[in-house]
Amino acid sequence: METTTQTFNQYLTALRILHGAMVMGLLMFMVIIHFVLQPEQEDDSTLFVNLMVGFMVICIALSYWLYGQRVAAVKTEPNLSAKLAGYRSASIVKFALLEGPSLAALVFYLVSGNIALLGIGALGAVVLAINHPTSVKIKTDLDLSPADTARVDNPNEIVM
């Protein structure tokens, strides 16, 4: 298996592309369901709304908690490469837990036609979108040492 090396900018770009693809996929799915498929509303779909609100709250809380747990564990890693690999893994888990309830809400919207479910899906998309990865957030979350910060700030330094 061939390994590739990355600078921090390449690492961050890859993480941003992953995040952007998740957000855009969710938004495109939302637009297709609402404007192309145009589901008809059923009379008794409040159960779906109540389930999805609860599911959304649980998944958001779980995503932040798991992310915090994983990042705390990654901070103890001895080298920068291991920290960044762990951070990417923690971010992917967080993104997936934020995207899942939105996708489920959109599927239930497709089934029931209740516009409130479309709103729940949109809210989840917004929460996912505001959790985009940035250089400052990575440095702050990982509590990088001055030496690691200098490596990250050097555009030619291989960090992974």
Results as ranks from 00 to 15, higher is better:
residue 76 T to I: 00
residue 125 A to N: 11
residue 20 G to T: 06
residue 49 V to F: 06
residue 103 L to N: 01
residue 27 L to N: 15
residue 75 K to G: 00
residue 87 Y to H: 01
residue 14 A to F: 11
residue 140 T to Q: 13
residue 39 P to C: 10
residue 49 V to K: 02
residue 23 V to W: 15
residue 96 A to H: 10
residue 80 L to E: 01
residue 53 V to Y: 03
residue 44 D to P: 00
residue 49 V to N: 03
residue 135 S to C: 09
residue 27 L to H: 07
residue 96 A to N: 08
residue 114 N to P: 02
residue 38 Q to G: 03
residue 96 A to D: 08
residue 89 S to R: 09
residue 116 A to Q: 15
residue 54 G to I: 10
residue 22 M to T: 11
residue 18 L to M: 11
residue 128 L to V: 08
residue 91 S to E: 07
residue 138 I to N: 06
residue 132 H to V: 12
residue 102 S to L: 07
residue 59 C to I: 02
residue 139 K to V: 04
residue 117 L to N: 08
residue 92 I to P: 10
residue 70 R to T: 05
residue 56 M to E: 09
residue 99 E to K: 06
residue 17 I to C: 09
residue 36 V to N: 13
residue 145 S to R: 02
residue 29 F to S: 04
residue 72 A to G: 02
residue 112 S to G: 14
residue 84 L to I: 05
residue 33 I to L: 15
residue 62 L to A: 15
residue 98 L to N: 07
residue 47 L to A: 09
residue 39 P to L: 05
residue 42 E to S: 03
residue 46 T to Y: 02
residue 34 H to G: 10
residue 56 M to W: 10
residue 129 A to I: 12
residue 133 P to W: 12
residue 102 S to C: 04
residue 126 V to A: 14
residue 106 L to N: 05
residue 44 D to E: 06
residue 91 S to K: 05
residue 109 Y to C: 12
residue 122 A to M: 08
residue 18 L to C: 09
residue 103 L to Q: 03
residue 137 K to Y: 04
residue 65 W to S: 09
residue 27 L to K: 13
residue 85 A to I: 14
residue 84 L to D: 02
residue 143 D to G: 13
residue 34 H to F: 08
residue 70 R to Q: 13
residue 108 F to P: 00
residue 110 L to C: 03
residue 23 V to D: 13
residue 52 M to P: 15
residue 108 F to W: 11
residue 51 L to H: 04
residue 93 V to T: 09
residue 66 L to T: 13
residue 145 S to E: 00
residue 81 S to F: 01
residue 27 L to A: 13
residue 76 T to M: 00
residue 72 A to R: 01
residue 31 V to A: 14
residue 64 Y to S: 12
residue 119 G to L: 15
residue 99 E to F: 09
residue 122 A to H: 04
residue 79 N to T: 01
residue 49 V to R: 02
residue 17 I to G: 04
residue 56 M to P: 01
residue 12 L to D: 09
residue 131 N to P: 01
residue 98 L to W: 06
residue 87 Y to C: 02
residue 99 E to P: 14
residue 52 M to D: 14
residue 91 S to Y: 08
residue 107 V to C: 15
residue 90 A to Q: 11
residue 14 A to V: 06
